[in-house]
Design a protein around this nucleic acid. Structure first.
Lengths: 164, 164
DNA sequence: TCCAGGATGTTGAATGTTCAATCGCATGGT
DNA sequence: ACCATGCGATTGAACATTCAACATCCTGGA
């Protein structure tokens, strides 16, 4: 608002930032390409299916699904529409609150997820966890949580990848 | 190739992974929205302008610019086309190798970048560095570099944000 | 010299995401 | 009971990215 008091990044921060940006961009791209190539879906869709797969009845309200996948409602709505066309997800109206819609993973959707999971997890492992020490895994978790707490997300947990 | 030997994520890895995915997704979204709102450009375009701004003559070959911004050539070509329409970047042919094209930051582009930089850096600081200890900044750099080394990127450096 | 193969860059179509507007429904206050 | 307000979800248009195909040019070897 008033004077020019921008605090620029110091050299340590700058290096960390550049490495971080490059690493996340490339990692994201690698995961996306692997899934697109081997399973015909982008990473965002895999995450939707994965979240649904781990929940009772494989069903969630659209708004809950949006929250758990860090997606806007609009984005999720478009995504579920496309997943529905592929037969991987089914919409069902909610009788208690008729504004709500349930999204349910179909059998075909579960099968597609189960087929995609090993390749996806393998890629995550190869590109990320195989290169980190156990200490670094903990550090990554703590750093991520610190960022989340600044974006209005409680330190709670969630689910992904596949059920046990 | 043979039996089902998928190594799933253990609980530590799983937690780290879920936190990481949520944090990067939300951080990316926050940075993108801030820039779009305050400067009318997505983060990817900011990074293109920032890289050009820190290089002699504010000029790079398209392929170099693609490499330094972790972008595919196609993506960069589309992006530069749009930046050119806005008057922020100019293309120039390369006489030594006529397959190549130079991309040069215009004065207007530099002005747009300079106007956008304080808000962008402020957002990075608020959402990321203000929440990390100095140790964690170093950890983040090391983790990112470990990932980069597994994706065919040398541990070298690069530039971003703005020149000094 | 000639040409095969690789490098550089662009293009169009298909796909995915964002933004703003909108619709129907629920809730709480009067 | 009424209605203002806000929530849940969807839609269409604009925007951005990916993928495959293409055009152009360089390079090295026969």
């Amino acid at each position: 608002m008033s004077g020019d008091e921008t605090r620029w990044l110091d050299p340590e921060e700058r290096e960390a930032w550049l490495s971080y940006v490059a690493a996340t961009t490339l990692l994201d791209g690698a995961l996306d390409r692997q899934l697109q190539r081997d399973a015909g879906m982008p990473l965002a869709y895999y995450q939707i299916l994965a979240m649904l797969s781990e929940v009772p009845n494989r069903t969630l309200r659209m708004s809950e699904l949006a929250a758990i996948t860090q997606s806007s409602q609009s984005r999720l709505s478009h995504a579920v529409a496309r997943l529905e066309r592929r037969g991987w997800v089914r919409r069902k109206p909610c009788s208690e609150d008729r504004r709500s819609t349930f999204a349910q993973l179909t059998e075909e959707g579960y099968a597609a997820l189960a087929a995609a999971a090993p390749g996806h997890v393998g890629t995550v492992r190869r590109h990320l966890f195989d290169r980190l020490t156990p200490e670094q895994v903990g550090q990554l978790r703590d750093i991520s949580r610190a960022v989340l707490s600044g974006l209005g997300v409680p330190g709670g947990d969630a689910r992904d990848v596949l059920p046990g």
